[in-house]
Computed example of a mutant assay.
Amino acid sequence: MKKILAIASTGGHNVQLALIRDALSSKGFDVIKVRTKVTVDEKDDEYYLIDEISRSNLLYAPIVIQQIIKILVETKVDVVLSTGALPGLVAIICGRIFSKKTIWVDSIANSRKVSLSGRIAEYIAHHTFTQWADLETEKIKYYGSIL
């Protein structure tokens, strides 16, 4: 059975990832959950918690890199999947370094252009997806939206 590390930042990124995780779990995949914060309704769920990083606090990037590497080593996943944001991109990069298959799904909130992390992921991830047909490119594919 394939093990998938599913990682997202809080908010809409995590809501979209939860839908993907549920679909993957229902198909028999072993989904390892990683998030940057825990919300009240997710408290009892099994997950790995990592620190949040963004462009405004890049000084924490080494800590997040260390946390993600520890999770990759401990879980021995086959695939790294993210709906964003920067912590997910870091996981995609670490996944590539560890020879894992990588998938980036850009947030549905990015309707006018692909996010900065998504534009970077398009060159790093094995597969990059958008949820808007008009944002599809040769490297970023559209197959519909999650929500």
Rank of each mutant, 00 (worst) to 15 (best):
K2A: 04
K3W: 03
I4C: 05
I4M: 01
L5C: 07
I7F: 06
A8N: 09
A8H: 03
T10E: 07
G11I: 09
G12F: 04
G12Y: 03
N14D: 14
V15G: 01
V15R: 07
Q16F: 04
Q16H: 10
L17V: 00
L17W: 00
R21G: 01
D22W: 04
A23M: 10
L24P: 03
S25Y: 02
S25F: 02
S26D: 15
K27D: 13
K27F: 05
K27N: 13
G28E: 02
G28F: 04
D30I: 10
D30R: 09
V31L: 01
V31F: 00
V31D: 02
I32P: 01
K33V: 11
K33F: 05
V34C: 08
V34F: 02
R35F: 00
T36Q: 02
T36C: 12
T36P: 09
K37S: 14
V40P: 12
E42Y: 10
D44G: 11
Y48I: 08
Y48K: 09
I53E: 08
I53G: 06
I53K: 03
S56T: 14
N57C: 02
N57D: 10
Y60K: 15
P62N: 10
P62Q: 09
P62S: 09
I63H: 04
I63Y: 07
V64I: 11
I65H: 04
I65N: 01
Q66G: 08
Q67I: 11
Q67V: 05
I68M: 02
I69Q: 04
I69W: 00
V73H: 01
V73P: 00
E74L: 12
E74Y: 07
K76D: 15
V77D: 02
D78S: 12
D78L: 09
L81I: 08
L81H: 04
S82K: 05
S82D: 06
S82C: 06
T83Y: 03
T83N: 01
G84Y: 08
L86E: 06
P87E: 08
G88Y: 06
G88S: 13
G88R: 07
L89E: 12
V90A: 14
A91Y: 02
A91I: 03
I92Q: 05
I92H: 04
C94L: 12
C94V: 09
G95W: 03
G95Q: 03
R96M: 14
F98Y: 15
F98H: 11
F98E: 13
K101M: 12
T102H: 11
V105M: 09
D106Q: 11
I108Q: 00
A109T: 11
N110G: 02
N110P: 06
S111W: 06
R112H: 11
K113E: 14
K113A: 13
S115N: 08
S115P: 08
S115M: 06
L116M: 14
L116K: 09
S117W: 02
S117I: 06
R119I: 12
A121G: 14
A121L: 14
A125Q: 10
A125T: 10
A125F: 07
H126G: 15
T128W: 10
T128I: 12
F129P: 09
Q131R: 01
W132I: 13
W132A: 11
W132P: 08
W132Q: 12
L135G: 07
L135F: 05
L135Q: 12
L135W: 05
E136F: 07
T137Q: 06
T137S: 14
E138S: 13
K139M: 10
K139R: 15
I140V: 15
K141L: 14
K141M: 10
Y142G: 01
S145W: 01
